[in-house]
């Protein structure tokens, strides 16, 4: 093979390599110039009745994008309550990254119908990208009360569910403890004819520096009451300090392990020591030349 053929072959391989590797080198984001149609949205309204007469309204806004439902952020949602004859605005909220807009209102501010029910409605009016949609729910006010019970060496929570002054029987109540990421379920039970249930509570759970635990009972998706949640704080946990302790001598600490420091000093010392000797010899060469 002659050298010119070799050079041509090299050139061909080089060009093919650059051209084909990787196949796409163009910019990644290209916007289409076509006008987009409004996307249909789906609204889902839910609520949580909490203690202290607070009702939390939650509107989930979603749309089908790329074949699956996705939460839509930054949409303005209007909340209102209706009766047989009037509509009262409760307020506005904007959806977050998960597509949920949340509004907390005082239960006393919500008008009731003749059956003492609250008719709640949430509405998204639509914008350039998304069509409007709304949803409504109807709930009956109820009360979920929690009472801590300490007996000898055991702990328990007594939960009472009432609507008006009437106890509500045969409802499943779950008991949770608030943790860093998601709540931890610690027990469950069903209310008796007095609307009461006693759920055992585990001992020795890690708490805050004072041993406090945030405990809440939850009634999920009831046909009349919606969701209900009542929270109490009890010093039933083991105190855990929130202060950082001095870090051990480890890789993530400010100080490297001793063996690493020694290895570094030995290796660097050996190499730079050699360099020092060589530089000294170069200076000797210079001095010898000057004397010569």
């Amino acid at each position: 093979m002659t050298s010119s053929k070799i050079i041509k072959f090299f050139g061909l391989i080089f060009v093919l390599t650059l051209w084909g590797f990787p196949s796409t080198v163009s910019a990644q984001d290209e916007e289409s110039g076509e006008e987009k149609e409004q996307i249909r949205t789906r609204a889902s309204l839910s609520c949580v009745q909490k203690n202290d007469d607070v009702i939390e309204l939650r509107m989930l806004m979603r749309a089908k994008i790329d074949g699956r439902y996705t939460g839509l952020p930054l949409l303005d949602v209007t909340f209102a309550a209706t009766t047989d004859s009037s509509e009262v605005s409760l307020g506005k909220a904007t959806t977050g990254d998960d597509g949920i807009a949340t509004l907390s209102v005082n239960a006393k501010d919500i008008p009731r119908d003749t059956a003492n029910r609250m008719n709640l409605i949430a509405e998204f009016d639509g914008n350039e990208a998304f069509k409007g949609s709304d949803d409504d729910i109807e709930i009956l006010p109820a009360l979920l009360a929690l009472e801590p019970v300490e007996e000898d060496s055991s702990l328990a929570v007594q939960v009472t569910l009432t609507a008006g002054d009437e106890p509500v029987a045969d409802e499943d109540i779950s008991l949770f403890v608030k943790r860093l990421f998601r709540p931890l379920k610690v027990g469950e039970g069903t209310t008796d004819e007095d609307g009461m249930v006693t759920i055992d509570f585990p001992m020795g759970m890690p708490g805050d520096p004072e041993g406090n635990l945030e405990i809440y009972a939850f009634l999920e998706d009831h046909s009349d009451f919606g969701n209900m949640k009542t929270t109490i704080t009890q010093a039933w946990g083991t105190p855990v300090s929130d202060k950082l302790e001095d870090m051990p001598r480890a890789l993530w600490s400010p100080n490297p392990p001793l063996w690493m420091v020694l290895a570094f000093i030995v290796l660097m010392g050996a190499v730079w020591g050699h360099y020092g000797v060589i530089v000294y010899k170069l200076l000797q060469i210079k001095r010898e030349g000057q004397e010569g």
Partner: peptide, 30 residues
């Protein structure tokens, strides 16, 4: 560096080259 190819200078250069070679081989591995 005033190199005049004297026996002393030759020796110093050769020793230095050997030293740097000795240190370079394991250093490259590391």
């Amino acid at each position: 560096l005033n190199y005049q190819d004297t026996e002393f200078q030759k020796k110093q250069v050769n020793v230095s080259k050997t030293l740097i070679s000795i240190i370079m081989v394991p250093m490259v591995v590391i």
